[in-house]
């Protein structure tokens, strides 16, 4: 049961955002004294809103001469009111249902995405990436599994089989997906990011988050490796769940980047419960 990747962008146009983000955007936008930073905070903690806002500000409608890689960056270029109205137009589509036929728990999924986002940003700082670029790592972490939302929404039957099979056989979800649908969530997310002209480093980090070694070599500051590592760390902590039962060891590229393996890196980072608690706050309604 293969998936036609070319139809995905159109499907996603009509895809709603997470209930947490939608509720908060509608609430904030109805207040005359809505603080811009509060609005930005809501958007940047919702993978669907973030993806769609980045898609729009990087689209021909704006025709901006440079790629926009974060919501803040978008606000500086196109203004807070335009971003607010974009968010409202996304909120107007509705909300993602909490449960779907695929059996992917959207609250757990959101927790996973936010956890990976936070840890990817920590890792950016750990790698000596300047603060302003560390935000890009957060965005990459938040969006890395976007393809799964697409699958859960539009191919729930086949995605459910993949989730079940991965759980039963304790195999990597993306490998099972590849086998049964001919394309895996990382590629779906990466292709969307590419089609929508998101910054190339972001598109690569999404596309290759299970296999950083397959990404382009000059990927800059290690965004893809950081997302890979953050993904394993957050799952080792048992924070959230996006359906993959396997925690992978670092491939050589990743351990070279961090100078250590998964458990080594985790002990360097120390106690992450504070970070995870902050992420958890954004999964509450």
């Amino acid at each position: 049961m293969a998936i036609d990747a070319t139809e995905v962008p159109d499907l996603v146009e009509r895809m709603p955002a997470f209930p947490q983000g939608v509720t908060k955007v509608l609430d904030l936008a109805s207040r005359p004294d809505c603080a811009p930073k509060a609005l930005v905070q809501v958007i940047e903690h919702d993978p669907v809103m973030t993806m769609k806002v980045l898609k729009l500000v990087n689209s021909a409608y704006f025709g901006l001469s440079r790629p926009i890689n974060s919501i803040n960056h978008g606000v500086v270029y196109v203004g807070i009111n335009t971003i607010k109205n974009l968010a409202l137009s996304i909120a107007a589509i509705g909300m993602l249902p909490k449960s779907n036929k695929a059996g992917l728990d959207m609250n757990q999924f959101l927790a996973h995405s936010l956890g990976v986002a936070s840890v990817a940003k920590l890792l950016a700082t750990h790698l000596g990436v300047p603060d302003k670029d560390a935000t890009d790592f957060f965005v990459a972490g938040l969006l890395h599994d976007f393809g799964k939302v697409v699958l859960a929404q539009f191919k729930p039957e086949v995605f459910r089989l993949c989730l079940d099979q991965a759980a039963e056989q304790q195999r990597s979800l993306h490998e099972v997906e590849l086998e049964s649908q001919g394309i895996s969530h990382d590629e779906i997310g990466g292709r969307l990011a590419e089609v929508w002209k998101l910054p190339p480093s972001l598109a690569h980090a999404i596309h290759h988050h299970h296999h950083p070694e397959r990404g382009p070599e000059d990927d800059g500051e290690g965004m893809c490796e950081a997302v890979f590592a953050a993904n394993q760390i957050v799952r080792s902590l048992g924070f959230g769940d996006a359906g993959n039962p396997v925690i992978a060891e670092f491939p050589p590229l990743v351990s070279e980047r961090f100078g250590t393996d998964l458990s080594g890196l985790m002990s360097i980072l120390g106690d992450l419960s504070g970070e995870m608690e902050k992420a958890r706050l954004f999964t509450q309604l």
């Binding site: 704006f62 901006l64 270029y77 196109v78 203004g79 009111n81 335009t82």
Partner: peptide
């Protein structure tokens, strides 16, 4: 050039 206003 795009300048800053509540609309493009």
């Amino acid at each position: 050039m795009l300048l800053n206003h509540p609309v493009l």
